[in-house]
């Protein structure tokens, strides 16, 4: 089997050891390498990761300090001078760079300020679903029995709700929808995927010999859960979470586009796509620019998630 050989190669890093350690010679590599550091080592060499990481860092900075990128305000409407003004492609980073929308607001400024909502929703939902999903999955997977039966049925019920449709219904109940409301709504509906992954991972790991060994030593449930099971279940959870992140950003844009996502005064790319829709023929840039921005962002996070999966996937080691 080639896997066997390759495994041997990656595991036994044995250069001839000093005679003192006989009969077994030791692994030669100079320092301790945890699986996390190995994954990081792989990640750094992955061009997909590098490209997506650069884009994501750029987006994060934009979300945190939008004023670094533009002096214009996304809410200053100058109908008199800039109504549907076309982009000035040559004037990089100036307020008029990407043109103005039908209210005379700078599209560039709105792109810059819209990043915050997208990133916050994406990251916020991911953090919430990861916490909820991991807790539910771990409890169901570890304790099993009726607790698992109940939690798994609850998970199934939530899984049965179409994501966007469910979010439409939930969000319709709110008049003012801030970033936090959207995060709560999406997290409420989205935790099931992580819960299932976590449950599956915990069930597998629970049977691993090292967990049995810890039980044989008399380790407490707490210790087994947090020292043995959680660190090993984390990799698949992180993979699913990073890939899902892009999806949540897309979901926010979709909901805002449908008019049930973020409401003014929050600047949202999805909302801008919606308002640009009517002007498709007269001022196409008001539709295209925010759409492209949503795509780039979602794509960056998907690529990032893919790279993380390649580095962490246990099947590859």
């Amino acid at each position: 089997m080639p896997d066997k050989t390759v495994e041997k190669v990656t595991t036994a890093t044995g250069e001839p050891a000093p005679a003192v350690v006989a009969p077994d010679s030791g692994p030669g590599a100079a320092k301790a390498r945890s699986l996390w550091s190995d994954a990081w080592h792989d990640l750094r060499r992955n061009p997909l990761f590098l490209i997506s990481a650069v884009l994501i860092v750029f987006l994060l900075v934009m979300a945190a300090w939008p004023s670094l990128f533009t002096s214009a305000s996304p809410r200053d409407a100058d109908l008199a001078n800039h109504f549907r003004e076309a982009p000035h492609w040559g004037n990089f980073f100036s307020p008029e760079w990407l043109g103005y929308d039908l209210q005379g607001r700078s599209v560039y400024a709105r792109i810059v300020y819209g990043a915050r909502a997208s990133i916050m929703v994406g990251v916020g939902v991911t953090v919430c679903v990861t916490i909820i999903g991991t807790v539910v999955g771990m409890i169901a997977g570890y304790f099993g029995g009726w607790l698992d039966a109940v939690l798994s049925r609850v998970t199934d019920v939530f899984l049965g709700i179409p994501f966007i449709l469910g979010a439409l219904v939930v969000l319709n109940a709110f008049d003012q929808r801030s970033v936090w409301v959207v995060i709560m709504a999406l997290a409420f509906l989205g935790w099931t995927q992580i819960a299932r992954v976590a449950r599956g991972a915990v069930i597998t790991i629970k049977q691993a010999d090292y967990v049995v060994a810890a039980r044989a030593l008399g380790a407490s449930t707490y210790r087994i859960m947090f020292k043995h099971i959680l660190p090993n279940a984390l990799a698949p959870i992180i993979v699913v979470a990073t890939i899902a992140l892009g999806g949540y950003i897309a979901a926010e844009a979709t909901l805002s586009f449908l008019g049930v996502g973020l409401t003014e005064p929050t600047v949202s790319w999805g909302g801008d796509v919606n308002s640009g829709r009517a002007d498709l023929r007269v001022a196409p840039h008001t539709l295209i620019v925010p759409s492209v921005m949503v795509s780039i962002t979602v794509l960056s996070f998907l690529m990032f998630g893919d790279a993380v999966r390649n580095a962490l996937d246990p099947k590859l080691r």
Partner: peptide
């Protein structure tokens, strides 16, 4: 018991691989 371990295939000992 044969002492030591089978060699690492990325760093096979020079000469006869079994020499160590």
């Amino acid at each position: 018991a044969i002492k030591g371990l089978p060699p690492n295939l990325t760093r096979i000992p020079s000469g006869c691989a079994f020499n160590p």
